[in-house]
Design a protein around this nucleic acid. Structure first.
Length: 112
DNA sequence: TGATTGACCAACT
DNA sequence: CAGTTGGCCAATC
């Protein structure tokens, strides 16, 4: 009980702040939350995102290469790509096109 | 309680 | 240049 302050709660909160048609990386969220956070923790938290009552736009969170590494965890190997394309984000070869332009860094946007 | 894993990242060989 | 290893910290077995 009383574990709603878990670290992934923060991860989901940041992920939820990602604008439409934008993407971010695990490391960016980790860096925004703090040095005690590592990219693995973010990815691990995303794995448990299904336990949340609200939909976490985990499809907007990719690795630092812009590659859809966790697409298999969406319930389908192509579901993540479909979601991104549905938002206007181009995805090619399991990789976000123009990732550099679509990259949304919370430590820059939120902390600004 | 100890060992393993995890949707990563970066460096080393 | 590509494959392997270490490290990060927390949760699960």
């Amino acid at each position: 009980m009383k574990t709603d302050e878990s670290f992934f709660e923060k991860v989901y909160e940041v992920a939820r702040q990602v604008p439409y048609g934008r993407v971010t990386s695990y490391g960016a969220i980790a860096a925004y939350l703090g040095t005690k956070m590592s990219a693995r923790m973010v990815g691990w938290a995303m794995n448990k995102c299904h336990v949340h009552p609200f939909p976490v736009p985990a499809h907007r969170v990719v690795n630092r290469n812009g590659m859809l590494t966790g697409k298999h965890h969406f319930g389908g190997p192509d579901l993540m790509q479909q979601l991104l394309e549905s938002e206007g984000t181009e995805v090619m070869n399991d990789q976000v096109v123009n990732f550099k332009e679509l990259f949304w860094d919370p430590s820059k946007e939120l902390s600004l």
